[in-house]
Design a protein around this nucleic acid. Sequence first.
DNA 1: ATTGAGACCATAAAATCCCATTGAATACCC
DNA 2: GGGTATTCAATGGGATTTTATGGTCTCAAT
Lengths: 145, 145
Amino acid sequence: MNGVDAKHRLSVPAPLRETIETRSQTRELVLGPDEHSPCLIGYDITYFDRLEARLEEEFAADFGPGRSRKARSVFGATEHLKYDETGRIILSPLMREMGEIGGQVVFMGVGHHFEIWSPEQFLAQEGQDPRVVKLVTALLAGRTQ
Amino acid sequence: MNGVDAKHRLSVPAPLRETIETRSQTRELVLGPDEHSPCLIGYDITYFDRLEARLEEEFAADFGPGRSRKARSVFGATEHLKYDETGRIILSPLMREMGEIGGQVVFMGVGHHFEIWSPEQFLAQEGQDPRVVKLVTALLAGRTQ
DNA sequence: ATTGAGACCATAAAATCCCATTGAATACCC
DNA sequence: GGGTATTCAATGGGATTTTATGGTCTCAAT
């Protein structure tokens, strides 16, 4: 679990930075609101390209309102963030609001991308896996890492 | 049976390391709590990739909430750990807690992945194979192999 | 002036590396 | 075969590096 300080800075966990950098060769990530849950999702820019390609594939020559709607939902509220060698990003007020983010967050890898959760918000969700609930509960209780 | 030292280091058995390295070409493994038993499960990253692929296959173009929930349950409580040439990993407090791990552990291969048990926890489970119980009992009593 | 972003330096804790020791299993030699 | 070297796995301890995070300073925009 990582803290968000008074300047809204947030350290991206080093292992995550490593995969981002090996995948994309940049110190850059894309953040946005999740479609279904009160959390943020993040990924490296190569995955961003994949999302674009998927949209292209799905709609092809169709430039109707459906495409626009989908594009807005996928890309509309995203931000591209660079982090320096100390690995911190700055969360904008919008991101903090959309992710319901307070003073602490949990990074959760979910395969191709990752999620950023407020631990309290995570535990408030129905139907989470009990193992992950246990993990987040332990994090909240201060049993570290 | 291997010990967990004061720095929470744990030697991964050499034969297991060998299979991990031939399978994945890395000195890296994924650890997480088991779904049903109080133990940890571990696997190499090629198996991790397979889990990812299976998720992709199962949900395909479906990006609904079910997919997110499944991804969180599969990947959410896992850690990727590297080990050096001496073959040791560091067990985080959370992993020790979720695997009910104390000062000693038993590695148990179960096909494409392996399990890490506290010997006491293992013996406390109902319905274990008597031969394995005998083995773990012997290990606990100090009779090696 | 105030605010916030961004660069930079500082620090405590934790992870990682490196070297040394033990001890068991195997190879070797007479 | 019996005894002895040799290898390699597991582990202990210290030194070193990395990480997460706090603080300061500058600059630009408001």
